[in-house]
Design a protein around this nucleic acid. Structure first.
Length: 947
RNA sequence: GCGGGUAUGGCGGAAUUGGCAGACGCACUAGACUUAGGAUCUAGCGCCGCAAGGCUUGCAGGUUCAACUCCUGUUACCCGCACCA
């Protein structure tokens, strides 16, 4: 047999010469569209991670073709971007030259793997024939008012010297180079992506994306439903509008916070007495790095605005206003109403600045010890629970009558001047201790519903918790009456939880252990006038109705998703096809003048002043207005990287069309991408941009589907040996070329399919690779055992049918690892036979062909088994061949396997039971015991329950 | 903090969706053969135990004749988002 390399080359040439994998322009056949994300052709070359996803989809595509589909499985290059430009800056070579070089390398590597891409449809985003249509589509956005220029504080990377979208600067770090991102004010072209926020969530319904991808998108879009509420200002006749998701807590607002950049600060600077302090804070906040902002989440900072006071619109209460950097200007209204009792951030702030905390929502517990009784009268009471502390012990009480052990409890009586007063009274009455040093009212309030045996009524108590500290153990004698009711007990902190009778009181231990926190879950409203007694959702609905009726607020939905910053101040991108004319404003370049070509220049460096390098090229910049013919200037910013990848799957359908971006006919036939594979890192950015772009085109009637992709699957990463990320610095990068030349493409492909769950990350193992090599070698050796026959060997006929079913189904479910495993199992079975038939062997090679296409074609030809596999039909199985007449099943006694018996398909339950009972080991284990029950599950198991 | 996910031998990983846990591969052990190779073949290989047998799917409970699988609680790790009101 020829060398692996020669065999692989031979078949690769065969496929090219015969145009085997080119999608047919035959719109009568059933279509299937597989797409892998086209790569950025970097200088580093192909990664084994690319091999994993390309092979997986290649296998699926090959199989689908053998099943008779017209398969589109294209490949191209996403070649605009920084690395090529960096290379150009360094070496003074036009980026297009470096890109061509890299594409050649990539393509050569992919071809060596035998991936069945349709190369006749290949293109690069940097081809003028392609970016002509990217520009054309941008103009459609522009003409519909979907592109606008705005002076915005944008994310600016000082190293790349360009603006970045929010998506590209998440975490405050430049996605490309890792530099700290700064804020800079600059005019930018924006696409109104936020208009599509709802539609982008909604459209997910029409897709079969993996759940994790859907979630990632939904989180990114960040929808929240709440209300805008207008607070009054005391000093001026003006409103301060806030956005909140919790309008139900309006009665618990104790302060307001506005973002440091909020316009009111400058607007009302005349009224503000501490303007210097505020300006100083604003400057410090602006300088904070993202690191500082995220690391110091708990440690809130801010300044009170002296001279401006807000007025709660429903209580009329005056409340202070602060500025703080925990409120962002770019979300909501840049101002919030703060409810410290029910929001953890507001809570932290209130604690630090000593602001009141008013609880308006209390959890409701139904006592498990003494649940309310039906038919009993209901009474409500306000009570206090007093936690008395002295040194590290807690003073509790044992109530004799009901054998309750808990904290001091008592109702609030009319004579009490305050909650604190009630607490003092109860401590003295129930325990006699008098030296009360300190009383602290916790903001935690809870309600409890129970049967109060001593009064024979159902009680709903609203409980406040006080922590009382004793200064000494000074004590006065308790009355005899009181002594009979209860006795005081000192309990140490460790024993406290066990000592307490009531579950609800044990929750107080959590407060003592972990400190207080804002109560953010559901409960019943208290201290809230019209909302009292309602739960969270009912209260939200009620208050929104109320606000709308009174004209002080309305329901409002917000999204985190912002408009897409669509410009970069770089050279190596699609020029934005717009011209600025003093007379006519922004004018689109006429269609017949597209594409606006990137000029050939010597200087690619970006500039510190934030202008694109194109701005220095006067021949490029200076032009005439297409509208009035007067001198005008071109836009010199270029499009972001994501532009070219936002519609490329459409171009594959009709890649050489010079008149349209894609013909309606091709669009109609190819429709959606049926299966789109890509990395998890693109689950938000690329995928959202692409869906947005497509939805816009759909709205304009330019494409027939609003969603571009049916299935989106993501492959797991391949890690280096030891489970660490492959990286140049660790020196553990595996170059696919090396594996192909030492073991062959088929071995590499088989190994990457066998390595583990396709969706999970996997660790590279040289040993595992060799295992797959041995498997393929064994397949090759089997050729010598082949005898001519056009039927399957009877001994393994059923196994073959089963394996056909298993491989077919597993591959469709991306379970390549078990598909390979099934083929290994079948091979092990064949090994037991003296000879196998040519039909056995050909079926086997066909099943293996999608994963190891070269060697299987070669063996098929060598042993003259039939037409080339790539031109043959996928094998089918017969249902009737899947069942056994005779089967081994397990017999359990009390759930433990004690024997296996052989049963026939037509055995009835009695016969199976009889066989099970007859087994010696079963006899042994049921001897002397009573048989309670015998469970017979046909074809599966017998379980004998004995006592 | 919020959201998503994972946890099974020495390792990568299977388990028809509640029915013999550990398929398949790697590593390992013993033997055979030899053209001395990335060999190949045969047998063994979860843990404890000489064995009978017992134990075992992160941990603790529960439901069931039967749980890797369902329910409750809990721990650890990974990923995404993150002061989003």
């Amino acid at each position: 047999m020829d060398s692996t390399q020669n065999i692989e080359k031979k078949w690769q040439k065969y496929w090219t010469d015969h145009h085997t994998f080119e999608a047919k322009i035959d719109y009568s056949k059933e279509k299937y569209y597989y797409l892998v994300e086209f790569p950025y052709p970097s200088g580093a070359g192909l990664h084994v991670g690319h091999v994993r996803s390309y092979t997986a989809l290649d296998a699926l595509a090959r199989k689908k073709r053998m099943m008779g589909y017209n398969v589109l499985f294209p490949m191209g290059w996403d070649a605009f971007g920084a690395p090529a430009e960096q290379y150009a800056i360094k070496n003074h070579i036009h980026p297009s030259i470096a890109v061509k070089e890299n594409i050649r390398t990539f393509k050569g590597q992919i071809e060596k793997l035998g991936i069945s891409f349709d190369w006749s449809r290949e293109f690069s985003t940097t081809d003028p024939e392609y970016y002509k249509w990217t520009q054309w589509q941008f103009l459609q956005f522009f003409k519909k008012g979907m592109a606008y220029k705005a002076k915005k504080n944008i994310n600016w990377c000082p190293k790349c010297k360009t603006g970045l979208s929010n998506e590209d600067s998440s975490g405050g770090v430049c996605e490309r180079c890792g530099s700290q991102v700064e804020q800079r004010e600059k005019e930018q072209w924006m696409l109104r992506m936020s208009d599509y926020a709802e539609s982008l969530i909604d459209g997910l319904k029409d897709t079969d994306f993996q759940e994790r991808i859907k979630t990632a998108q939904i989180n990114w879009i960040g929808k929240s439903v709440g209300a805008e509420v207008d607070f009054g200002l005391k000093q001026v006749d003006e409103k301060l509008t806030v956005y909140t998701t919790r309008p139900d807590t309006l009665y618990g607002v104790t302060f307001m916070v506005i973002a440091p950049e909020h316009p009111y600060i400058d607007l009302y600077s005349g009224l503000i007495n501490n303007m210097n302090e505020i300006i100083d804070y604003r400057e410090r906040a602006n300088k904070k790095t993202e690191f500082e902002r995220t690391q110091l989440v708990k440690d809130k900072t801010g300044v009170r605005i002296d001279g401006l006071t807000a007025v709660n619109p429903i209580t009329g209460k005056e409340i202070p206003i602060y500025i703080s950097d925990y409120v962002m200007m770019n979300y909501g209204t840049g101002a919030i109403m703060a409810v410290p009792a029910h929001d953890s951030r507001d809570y932290d702030f209130a604690k630090k600045f000593g602001i009141d905390i008013i609880p308006v929502l209390a959890p409701l517990y139904v006592s498990p010890e003494t649940p309310p009784l039906e038919g009993k009268k209901n009474t409500e009471r306000d009570t206090v629970i007093v936690v008395v502390k002295y040194e590290d012990k807690y003073l509790c009480v044992r109530y004799h009558k009901f054998n309750w052990q808990t904290f001091i409890m008592g109702g609030i009586e009319e004579e009490d001047d305050s909650v604190e007063g009630a607490a003092r009274r109860e401590v003295i009455e129930e325990t006699g201790y008098t030296d009360i040093k300190n009383v602290e009212l916790l903001s935690y309030v809870f309600q409890e519903s129970f049967y109060a045996a001593h009064k024979d009524v159902n009680r709903l108590t609203t409980n406040r918790v006080l922590v009382v500290e004793l200064g000494s153990l000074a004590k006065e004698e308790m009355t005899k009456e009181e002594q009979e009711i209860q006795e005081p007990v000192w309990v140490s902190k460790n024993e406290l939880r066990d000592f307490l009778t009531f579950e609800t009181h044990k929750k107080i231990c959590d407060l003592l252990d972990n400190g207080e926190q804002a109560f953010v879950s559901d409960g019943t409203h208290i201290n809230s006038d019209i909302l009292n007694g309602l739960n969270k959702q009912d209260a939200i609905d009620t208050i929104i109705d109320y606000l709308e009726e009174k004209g002080i607020g309305h329901k409002k939905t917000n999204y985190k998703l912002q408009d897409w910053i669509f410009t970069r101040q770089r050279f190596w991108g699609e020029p934005i096809p717009l011209i600025y004319c003093e007379e006519c404003g922004w004018v689109p370049v006429p269609e017949e003048d597209l594409p606006v070509l990137l000029p050939n220049v010597a200087e690619y460096e970006p500039t510190d002043d934030g202008e694109s390098p194109l701005a220095r090229i006067s021949e490029f910049v200076n032009t005439t207005c297409p509208h009035c013919g007067k001198p005008a200037k071109r836009e010199t910013d270029t499009m972001p990287n994501w532009a070219g990848s936002s519609w490329y799957w459409l171009r594959y359908m009709d890649p050489h069309n010079e008149k349209e971006f894609v013909s309606a006919e091709a669009l109609k036939y190819w429709g959606k991408v049926d299966w789109y594979n890509g990395g998890m890192e693109h689950a938000t950015r690329h995928l959202l941009y692409a869906r947005f772009w497509n939805q816009f085109l759909y709205k304009e009637g330019l494409v027939p589907n609003s969603e571009p992709f049916k299935v989106r699957a993501a492959h797991g990463m391949i890690l280096g040996e030891g489970g660490v990320k492959m990286s140049k610095s660790l020196g553990n990068v595996i170059n696919p070329d090396d594996i192909v030349s030492t073991h062959g493409a088929d071995t590499l492909r088989t190994y990457e399919m066998f390595i583990g769950d396709y969706e999970k990350e996997a660790t590279w193992s040289e040993q595992g690779l060799i295992g797959c090599r041995r498997f393929l070698d064994k397949v090759i050796r089997f050729g010598e055992k082949v005898v001519k026959s056009d039927s399957y060997s009877s001994e393994i006929e059923k196994d073959i049918h089963r394996t056909i079913k298993k491989v077919t189904e597993d591959m469709d479910a991306l379970k390549f690892n078990t598909a390979v495993s099934a083929l290994m199992i079948l091979l092990n079975k064949m090994e037991k036979l003296e000879s196998i038939t040519s039909k056995d062997y050909r079926a086997y090679l066909m099943l293996l062909n999608p994963i190891a296409p070269h060697i299987t074609e070669e063996l098929n030809e060598m042993y003259e088994l039939g037409t080339p596999l790539c031109e043959s039909s996928w094998p089918t199985y017969e249902e009737s061949m899947l069942v056994d007449e005779e089967k081994e099943i397990a017999v359990q006694v009390n759930g433990k396997v004690r024997a296996t018996i052989s049963v026939r398909a037509d055995d009835n339950d009695e016969q199976i039971e009889e066989k099970a009972m007859a087994s010696l080991n079963v006899q042994k284990h049921i001897e002397g015991k009573t048989i309670v029950k015998v469970i017979v599950i046909k074809g599966k198991i017998v379980n004998i329950v004995v006592r």
